[in-house]
């Protein structure tokens, strides 16, 4: 079922640019399969998704996608080395139990890995911590401490450090705020960071 033409989300537009045509992709935490469907339709990719939410798995299958109902932390072990051209972890890394292991596993099964992370050190968050003395709740990070699905809190700077400490090459990096790329001080002004990685 093809949905009516909708505005493609800005982060999805960037990922669509990065992924080469006809590639094999694995989308970790693929949700309702919006991005995976776009990659298949727009870039003629072959793809499969991993998703833990049962309702979202139904949505994927109804959209004609291949999806595995498993969590990201344990779902990668099944795949052989370099089976995929790209493994995508968009907006899901902060919810996994063992992010380091997941990224390394993603780099094992994929030639390249695309990671999208929320920036917990955006200036608005920093100001809330500084002036209110409270853990930040912003439009981009809308959860209270007691009901957040996020297990990991990191900034773009943190992620860069992680990559360099683990010998992961950052091929591309983009900070995003709304529908714009943040050129100046992304660690301060970007809401999300997108990375293209290789090991």
């Amino acid at each position: 079922m093809i949905k009516p033409q909708q505005q493609i989300r800005f982060d999805h537009q960037i990922i669509l640019e990065w992924v080469r045509a006809h590639a094999k992709v694995l989308d970790l935490g693929c949700g309702d399969g919006t991005l995976l469907g776009l990659l298949i339709r727009k870039k003629d990719c072959h793809g499969t998704g991993i998703e833990i939410n049962e309702h979202a798995v139904y949505q994927c299958i109804e959209a004609g996608l291949t999806v595995s109902h498993v969590d990201i932390d344990t779902g990668l072990i099944d795949y052989s080395n370099k089976r995929f051209d790209y493994v995508i972890l968009n907006e899901s890394l902060q919810e996994v139990l063992h992010p380091r292991q997941v990224i390394l596993e993603a780099l094992r099964v994929g030639r390249k890995v695309i990671v999208g992370i929320p920036n917990f050190c955006h200036i608005r968050a920093r100001l809330q911590i500084f002036f209110q003395g409270r853990v930040p709740v912003t439009p981009e990070l809308p959860y209270q401490w007691y009901d957040t699905p996020n297990l990991r809190f990191l900034s773009l700077q943190d992620f860069r450090h992680f990559c360099s400490n683990n010998d992961i090459r950052i091929l591309k990096e983009v900070g995003v705020a709304g529908n714009k790329i943040v050129q100046l001080q992304p660690n301060l002004f970007a809401h999300t960071g997108l990375y293209l990685l290789e090991k």
Binding site: V57, I61, T66, V67, S68, H69, D78, R83
Partner: peptide, 21 residues
């Protein structure tokens, strides 16, 4: 079923799986 899915994935077969509540 999950063991089966593992073996299918290891063979690069196209497999969708769901555990219905």
């Amino acid at each position: 079923s999950k063991e089966m899915v593992r073996a299918l994935k290891a063979n690069d077969l196209d497999v969708s799986d769901i555990e219905i509540n």
